[in-house]
């Protein structure tokens, strides 16, 4: 029996015209999408164009396209090639890496300790870890200015050992920056890791302890594989933002300790060199995408969310 092919479809239990469905869907998604595209996606793409523009005399943008900024990125400036920029890029990566490693080293004992507490206490510990996570980074960072200030115990101790002159503070300097970074990012590492540690199979762990002689082997063969997902998330949410961090280095690091984030911020404020800032931002984007690609492949994670 011939039957007219109807123009309707069934969708989630309703029978309706596909066009009507599409219109509804568009009505819901278009406003947010337009917002995002206008204020985020397009500007991000424009960064590429901006990076190739030039800075005018008074800090405005001249849309004359040149590769100058990219050359400056890799070191070629007015005075010929210098390694300064490389140092900045390298320092950003190095600092992020060290911070991540220290955070991992601290997060494992921390999460193990918490997971072995009785349930009541566990919640308490988790709240303690979550609170700094939600505290403003500016507040948390400047607080170190107090702790590391001159004539306080930590600074006094360092002076006693001759590490710093008498009456000086422990900042600005590498030590202060690392302290700031680790204390900022430890919750970022610990919380995802905790989610994995919570799901650990303790019986497997016991078996591994019997099997392997050294603690290190127990860690690499039993704990590490099982906690990989949480560890991967923790590394990504620590390493990537750490690379781009500028608050901590700005407050605790001083002029000698610039990271790429500080450089970028400079271009958009004092130096008023937007094109160069765009080029730096692109470089940071590339670094971000590469690190994420590496970590995702290493951990076999396909979906970050």
């Amino acid at each position: 029996m011939a039957s007219k092919k109807s123009d309707r479809i069934s969708w989630r239990g309703d029978v309706t015209k596909p066009l009507r469905l599409r219109l509804r869907g568009l009505g819901l998604t278009l406003p947010p999408l337009v917002w995002l595209t206008l204020l985020m996606t397009i500007p991000c793409l424009t960064l590429v164009a901006l990076a190739m523009a030039t800075r005018g005399q008074y800090g405005d943008v001249i849309w004359q396209f040149t590769g100058n900024n990219f050359r400056r990125l890799i070191g070629y400036s007015f005075f010929g090639w210098s390694a300064d920029n490389f140092y900045v890029l390298f320092r950003s990566l190095w600092m992020a890496a060290i911070t991540t490693i220290i955070c991992v080293a601290l997060a494992y004992p921390l999460t193990f300790h918490v997971v072995t507490r009785p349930p009541r206490t566990r919640v308490f510990w988790l709240i303690l870890i979550i609170i700094p996570f939600w505290t403003n980074v500016v507040v948390r960072t400047y607080a170190w200015l107090l702790v590391l200030g001159p004539n306080l115990p930590p600074a006094r101790l360092a002076a006693f050992f001759g590490l710093i002159p008498e009456g000086a503070a422990l900042y600005p300097g590498q030590f202060a920056v690392y302290l700031g970074m680790v204390s900022t990012f430890l919750p970022f590492m610990a919380l995802p890791l905790y989610a994995s540690v919570e799901r650990l199979n303790w019986d497997l762990l016991e078996a591994a302890r019997d099997l392997y002689a050294s603690r290190f082997q127990v860690f690499t063969k039993a704990i590490l594989p099982q906690t990989k997902p949480g560890l991967a998330v923790g590394i990504i949410v620590t390493f990537v933002p750490a690379m781009a961090m500028f608050v901590v280095t700005d407050i605790l690091g001083g002029a000698k300790f610039m990271l790429i984030g500080n450089l970028i911020q400079q271009q958009f404020t004092q130096a008023r060199n937007w094109p160069y800032g765009a080029a730096l931002s692109l470089a940071l984007m590339v670094m971000t995408l590469i690190s994420m690609a590496i970590f995702r492949r290493r951990s076999g994670l396909r979906n970050l969310s």
């Binding site: 109807s6 309707r8 479809i9």
Partner: peptide, 10 residues
């Protein structure tokens, strides 16, 4: 039930 449409038939 009406939760699916047949391709042909009534």
């Amino acid at each position: 039930a009406g939760l699916e449409l047949p391709d042909t038939g009534k």
